[in-house]
């Protein structure tokens, strides 16, 4: 595969097998002696470490800038509250400014408009960034602090760890809103993992709309084939979407998953599915 390829593993619906596919794929790529990174961007509920069992050699707090008001310098003009679109800073009466750090998006607007230079920035913890090694896989994971809503900001930090000359496998969060958009930005290829059920199909359609809107090349992997109906395959055929992997609905996979095991370790007969997936994606990237 092309070095520097950034491949995001996403899905509209949660629990379809993103992490299973991303972790096993990264492992298989490492076995082909290619430099590969696994980056867990599902920062609200990161699970990649459970399967890849990395050795973390660097862990740091991720911080964002929020306003810190010096009331001595404040002239009570109210400009900070006027520019803030998020209700994170409010000038209530003369020379009294309240800040709500958790609502702040760190746009810096209040600091720029303040005519008396009364607003400086201070740093607010939003989560942690862990880096390490899982076998030959370079491992990166973000973990959002409980109560923080700065999911996209932390995802951005995780993605800053993408290295040159590495294939990056990104484990995306579920859904189709801002955290997913932040994760998929600048990806070279998106793999949408779904399951053959009405919920799986409905959420796949949303994810397809999103990747098309973002003009990103993508393909579909169907997990738990046989558990439901054929509508996902029919939809992909009608929309001319390539299905690059099918994983069977095998109770042994569910059990291995439940214990935090890698499928390719416990059920080596599935290794060829992941090698096939790797080859299919390599081919799609050349198109």
């Amino acid at each position: 595969m092309e070095k520097n390829a950034v491949i995001a593993i996403a899905s509209g619906k949660g629990g379809t097998g993103k992490t299973t596919v991303a972790a096993n794929l990264a492992w298989v790529i490492a076995e082909q002696e290619e430099a590969v990174q696994y980056l867990d961007c599902d920062v609200e509920e990161p699970n990649g470490h459970i399967f890849l069992k990395p050795k973390i050699n660097q862990s740091e707090k991720v911080k964002v800038a929020v306003p810190d008001v010096d009331l001595e310098k404040c002239i009570g003009c109210g400009k900070c509250g006027q520019i803030c679109q998020y209700g994170a800073i409010v000038s209530i009466k003369e020379k009294n400014v309240l800040t709500f750090e958790q609502l702040c998006h760190s746009c810096g607007g209040c600091m720029r408009v303040c005519p008396s230079n009364a607003i400086k920035s201070k740093m607010l913890d939003i989560g942690t960034l862990d880096c390490g090694k899982a076998g030959n896989v370079d491992f990166v994971s973000g973990k959002l602090q409980i109560g923080s809503v700065r999911t996209p900001a932390l995802i951005k930090k995780v993605k800053e760890q993408i290295k040159e000359n590495y294939i990056a496998i990104i484990d995306a969060p579920p859904g189709t809103s801002c955290p997913v958009v932040e994760t998929l930005k600048e990806a070279d290829f998106v793999l949408l993992v779904t399951e053959p059920t009405p919920f799986g199909l409905n959420d796949l359609k949303l994810a397809v709309d999103l990747t098309r809107e973002m003009r990103l090349p993508f393909a579909v992997a169907i997990n738990r084939c046989g558990m439901g109906d054929n509508k996902v395959e029919e939809y992909c055929q009608n929309e001319e979407i390539k299905i690059v992997m099918k994983l069977a609905d095998d109770r042994r996979i569910a059990e291995a998953y439940s214990d935090g095991e890698m499928i390719i370790d416990v059920l080596p007969e599935y290794k060829k599915s992941f090698i096939g997936l790797y080859e299919n994606i390599s081919r799609k990237l050349k198109e």
């Binding site: 629990g15 609200e44 959002l144 409980i146 809503v149 999911t151 969060p173 579920p174 859904g175 955290p179």
Partner: peptide
């Protein structure tokens, strides 16, 4: 509700 622990869940 939605999955996760972020803004829509809160």
């Amino acid at each position: 509700g939605s999955p996760g622990i972020g803004c829509p869940v809160i």
